Structures are given as structure tokens and as C-alpha cells.
Simulated scan of single mutants.
Amino acid sequence: MLIDTHAHLNAEQFDEDRQEVIARAQQNGIRRIINVGFNRETIPTSLALAEQYDFIYSTVGWHPTDAINMKDGDLEWLESLCAHEKVVAIGEIGLDYYWDTSPKDVQDRVFREQIRLARKVKLPIVIHNRDAHHDVVETLREEKASEVGGVMHCFSGSWETAKQCLDLNFYISFGGPVTFKNAKQPKEVLEKVPLDRLLIETDAPYLAPHPYRGKRNESSYVRLIAETAAEIKGLSLEELAEITTRNATKLFNLKTSEMTQK
């Protein structure tokens, strides 16, 4: 049994065949999916998907590239949604210094506000970090994010950064890029991450694993990421699946009973 810990199945790329994509995931052994809402538009559709399928859960948060669009009252709105039975984390939140869409000071403020919210409602955090490794780690430390912990989504940093995140009570999650032939650093980091802090994800529809690189990603492909992770760790696919499923279930406080479609 596998869990895709980060997907965007409510994205428009799935509008033509969403039901088939979800069915394929189930057929390939993916028993739970954490779907991510990250702004005013995607949070409601992510929640709707989680309400439609028992085995799909949702996160709610404000993405750093959209931080400039966060209005008065939106933080209170997020807080109200945290009481929803299918909301399992705050995210994805963080810092993005690659896309020049939100000023760094606005990203910083929105990031810190949401960490404080997570601590208030006692939910883990899903971190987006692009080209901002130092500032993300320092902010997590300053805002005492270790109290709730969370996951470094689609981790792309060094082992030194990973160690700092582990010390802050965060899991390290790997997606499609770890399967790329030239992905030397992600493979080296995955090899060193303790098994009890390892997660896998797709980030569908983005970052499809080999051999689908450059095409639309989907949750069923998390199996390919699991196979690569198992090979790097010297485990069977079944062992890797059991470990990462246990980790995700613990982090997101998921039901342990079997999930079935409504």
C-alpha cells in the first residue's frame, strides 16, 4: 500500500479525466492521497475532492508565489477550515526565490503567520522551498515550527540542509526528480535520510518521474518513485511501501482503517 503525500488532482490538467486518474491510482496500490490547496482558488476545489473520496485528504495554505494576493481575512478563513475533518495539514507554505511574483518581505510575513496558525491549531506543515534553503530553515527555527513538525515537500536541498530540517522535526519527501538519471544530489540525500523520516510524493501534475519526464504526472506514478527509493535504500518495494505509509499515516494523523471510495 502506497500513499501519495502531495498531489494537485484538482488542477485543470485533470479536468478531462480526473475520475480515471484517481481510479488508476487505486489500481496501482495507492490507497491514500494528500491533495494540496494553496490559494483562494485551489483550496475549495481540493476540499471538494476530499469530500467526494474517502481516501483523499486535503491541506490548506497559502503558496509563497501567491503571497501577494493574500487579503485581510484570509488567515482567519484558513483557520476556520482547519476544523474540517479531512484537513490534515497547513500547506503548502514557504518561500520561493525562483519565481518573482511576490516580494520576499511579503512571502516572509505570510509564511510566519501560517506557521503560527499551524502551532495554534496543532497541525503539521507542508513546506515549499525553492532557492531559499537558508531562509526557510531559519524561519522554521525562529517560529518554533518543530512544535508541530511537517514535511519538506519535494526536497531539493543538500544533506546539510536535510539534517537541519530533520532536527526541526520534519520529514523529507522525494518526488519524480529523484528518478532522473542525472539526479545525483537527491539520490545521495535519500540514501542518508532515516527510514522513519522518509516520505514519497508525486506533486502531480508536475515533475513526472522517469520514464514520463516532461509529461503530465499523476498519483499512480508514485509507485515509480517508491521503486527508486527502495533500490537506493536496499529494500524491497513492499518494505519501502510499508515504511513510508506508516510515516505518512503518523505525520498526517490518518485513519488506519482501509479507505474506500464513497
Rank of each mutant, 00 (worst) to 15 (best):
M152Q: 14
D203C: 02
A83D: 15
G91K: 00
N35M: 08
V36K: 09
D4Y: 09
L235Q: 03
Y212K: 01
A183E: 13
G234M: 03
A162V: 00
S46Q: 09
A229S: 10
W62D: 08
L251E: 08
L117T: 02
M70S: 00
L78P: 07
V148Y: 14
E79S: 05
F155K: 05
D203S: 02
K86T: 10
L123N: 00
S58Q: 03
K181W: 10
S156M: 11
Q107I: 08
I225V: 12
I200W: 10
R197L: 04
D203K: 10
R246E: 15
D108S: 14
K104W: 09
K262N: 15
E85Q: 12
T179E: 04
I68Y: 01
W62N: 06
T249F: 13
R119T: 01
Q107T: 03
Q164T: 11
V222T: 03
T65I: 15
V106E: 07
I93V: 13
N39A: 12
Q261V: 14
N217L: 02
A229T: 13
P186G: 05
R246T: 15
V178Q: 01
N69C: 00
K187L: 01
A162K: 07
N28V: 08
L47H: 11
E191T: 10
V87L: 07
S46P: 12
P186N: 11
M1I: 10
A229P: 09
L235W: 02
V87N: 04
S102V: 03
E242S: 08
K187W: 01
P44L: 03
K250L: 12
E79D: 08
L81I: 08
S46M: 05
V87F: 00
E238W: 04
E113C: 05
A25K: 02
E227D: 10
P64G: 04
R24V: 05
S219C: 08
R119W: 05
H133W: 15
K86P: 11
D17T: 05
Q107D: 08
Q26R: 15
P205K: 00
L2H: 06
E20G: 02
A208K: 09
R32P: 12
L117D: 05
K262I: 02
L75N: 08
R31C: 12
H153F: 10
A162F: 02
T228P: 11
N39M: 09
V189F: 01
R40T: 00
F14K: 06
H63S: 05
Y97R: 05
D105C: 06
F38M: 11
R119N: 03
I33D: 01
L207D: 06
A50Y: 09
A48N: 09
A89P: 12
I30W: 07
